[in-house]
């Protein structure tokens, strides 16, 4: 049973990691807690759901379409709601993000209703891997692999490509980067596009995995993913993965030992404890105080 629970924890953790990756990347570049990230995740899930139910497309094609849709959505949101606020206080941007989040979730509620929607049975090959008493579904493996793959890809983009260099420059010093010829608007749009694509991928996979897509899924899962990103050290891409997995495994083992009612409390307690001993998260960079 312990091994099975470990698998459960890893699978749950991967879903957190999938969303935390997007959170952390946007934060890493423009230091904005993008509260609307969870809603983009929800929008991706609903878009794929519509594709599958109405146009009857294959789930993998729906996934790609949802990523494209959310990419545009992300760029649009950044352009409308955040761009003007880049030089204002960070709180203003945070409130604007909350406004976007309220808008999107209410829109989803109006369009799709309050009840959760499920993808049809058998949309995804429902096989299982049996290792002794432990069973792992293909979907669990896929989520794990996809989040690992995305983490590596992101790491590669940010650290090994030209646009990545521009992203890091923008994150270090916005004005200097602009002076040095970096097209910061383009870089930030790109960051949002990438982050939103990740959110969409996460939304579709999580929607299929938990078999429920609902207007409020963004807030509930988004909050945990945000916690995971901070736990790993917000801004750090491997940190988001680590934080997500750690949070997932902690939650599952809290349930295993019989404290299911304290599940969320323990998860956040771990977060707060880690922060006390490592104030910038597990893999986060030390905050440099400029004098």
């Amino acid at each position: 049973m312990l091994w099975q629970q470990l698998i459960n924890g890893l699978a749950l953790g991967s879903t957190y990691a999938l969303i935390a990756l997007g959170y952390t990347m946007v934060y890493g570049i423009i230091q904005l807690i993008n509260f609307a990230h969870g809603e983009i995740f929800m929008a991706g899930a609903f878009f794929a759901f519509l594709m599958v139910m109405v146009l009857k497309v294959n789930i993998f094609i729906a996934l790609i379409l949802a990523m494209a849709f959310c990419m545009l959505l992300g760029i649009f949101i950044e352009f409308v709601a955040y761009r003007r606020l880049r030089n204002s206080s960070r709180l203003s941007a945070l409130i604007s993000a909350i406004g976007v989040s309220i808008f999107l979730s209410t829109l989803a509620l109006l369009v799709f209703g309050a009840d959760a929607k499920g993808f049809p049975d058998g949309i995804f090959p429902n096989g299982q891997l049996q290792l002794g008493s432990v069973s792992i579904s293909f979907l669990q493996i896929l989520i794990f692999v996809v989040s690992g793959f995305l983490m590596l890809t992101l790491q590669f983009i940010v650290h090994r490509t030209k646009i990545g260099k521009a992203m890091r420059a923008t994150s270090q010093d916005y004005n200097t980067a602009a002076l040095m010829g970096v097209n910061v608007n383009m870089v930030i749009s790109f960051t949002f596009a990438l982050g939103s694509m990740l959110a969409a991928a996460g939304g579709v996979l999580v929607g299929v995995y938990f078999n429920a897509v609902s207007f409020n899924m963004g807030l509930l899962v988004g909050l945990k993913a945000f916690a995971a990103a901070v736990l790993g050290g917000i801004g750090s891409i491997p940190g988001a993965m680590l934080g997500g997995i750690l949070l997932g495994v902690t939650e599952v083992f809290t349930v295993t030992v019989g404290f299911s009612s304290y599940r969320d409390a323990i998860a956040f307690a771990v977060l707060v404890l880690v922060l006390l001993f490592r104030p910038s998260g597990l893999l986060g960079q030390k905050i440099q105080k400029k004098v």
Binding site: G9, V255, R263
Partner: peptide
């Protein structure tokens, strides 16, 4: 909890 999506750990128990 209402709003939970993951029940794997409880079911394994």
């Amino acid at each position: 909890k209402d709003g939970d999506k993951d029940f794997s750990a409880q079911i394994t128990n």
